[in-house]
Computed example of a mutant assay.
Amino acid sequence: MPSQPSRELETFSNPFPNRDYTIRIKIPEFTCLCPKTGQPDFATLHLEYVPDHNCVELKALKLYIWSYRNQGAFHEAVTNQILDDLIAVCNPRFIRLTAEFSVRGGIYTTVIAEYRQPNWNTPKIVQLP
Rank of each mutant, 00 (worst) to 15 (best):
A77H: 12
W66C: 02
R24F: 02
N70L: 09
D85C: 03
P123F: 13
V56A: 05
L86F: 08
P40A: 13
T110H: 06
D52V: 02
F12W: 01
Q39E: 09
L86Y: 10
I95V: 13
G38A: 02
R93Q: 14
E29G: 06
I95W: 07
V50F: 12
T37A: 07
Y115N: 01
K124H: 15
M1N: 10
E76S: 10
L45H: 13
T31E: 05
A113I: 03
P15M: 00
D85V: 01
V111Y: 11
Q4P: 05
F42A: 08
T98N: 08
V78C: 09
Y21L: 04
Q39N: 04
Y49V: 13
V56M: 04
E76V: 06
K36P: 00
F30C: 04
T79D: 11
Q117T: 10
F101M: 02
S13W: 00
K36I: 11
Y64P: 06
L45G: 10
D52E: 12
A99Q: 08
V50M: 12
R104G: 01
N121H: 14
S102F: 07
P28E: 09
K36E: 09
T37E: 07
P2N: 14
I23P: 07
L128Q: 14
L45M: 15
C90H: 00
Q117R: 12
R93M: 10
C34T: 02
E48R: 14
I125R: 15
L45P: 13
L58G: 05
T37W: 02
K36Y: 00
I107T: 13
C55M: 15
P92C: 03
T44E: 13
I82C: 05
K26Y: 06
F94I: 04
N80G: 00
K62Y: 05
T98M: 12
L45I: 14
T11Q: 09
L61I: 06
S13Y: 06
A88F: 04
K124T: 14
F74T: 08
N14R: 11
A99K: 08
R24Q: 12
T22A: 08
G105S: 11
C55A: 10
E100K: 08
G105A: 12
F42N: 10
N91A: 08
G106P: 03
S6M: 01
N70E: 14
I82S: 02
C90K: 00
I87P: 11
R104L: 03
L86K: 11
N18E: 13
S67R: 06
F16G: 00
T31K: 10
R24K: 15
T31Y: 07
P92R: 05
N119A: 11
C32V: 01
V50E: 12
T79W: 09
T98C: 11
G105Q: 11
I125Q: 15
P118R: 03
D85R: 02
P28L: 10
E100R: 06
